[in-house]
Amino acid sequence: MHHSRLSTLVLDCCGDDLAAATAFWSQALGKPVANSDQDGDGKYAELGTDADEPIILLQRVDHPSRVHLDIETDDLEAEVGRLERLGAKRVSFMRGCWWVMEAPSGHRFCVVRPQRDAFGPHLNRWD
Rank of each mutant, 00 (worst) to 15 (best):
D12S: 07
F93T: 06
N124Q: 09
E102Y: 04
R82L: 09
A118K: 12
L86K: 08
T73G: 00
D12A: 15
S26P: 12
R82P: 04
F109H: 07
D70R: 12
E53A: 11
D37E: 09
W98H: 14
L123W: 08
E72K: 03
L9D: 00
E77L: 04
A28Q: 11
A19E: 00
A20H: 07
S65M: 04
L11M: 09
R95S: 14
L69V: 13
L47Y: 02
A34K: 14
E102H: 00
A88I: 03
A20F: 02
P104V: 03
S26R: 10
L83Y: 01
H107L: 10
F93V: 02
D62S: 14
S7V: 08
L123D: 12
N124Y: 05
G87V: 07
S65R: 08
S4H: 13
S65D: 01
G120M: 08
L76N: 03
D37R: 06
P114A: 09
A88T: 07
H2P: 14
H63G: 10
Q115I: 12
S105M: 05
H63T: 10
C14F: 04
D127Q: 15
V61I: 15
A21W: 12
D127K: 13
D41P: 05
G30L: 09
E102V: 07
E53I: 02
S26F: 06
A19F: 00
P64G: 11
R90G: 09
M94C: 14
S26K: 07
I56E: 08
G87P: 03
H3D: 11
R116A: 13
D17C: 00
G106Y: 02
V67F: 07
L6Y: 06
N35A: 12
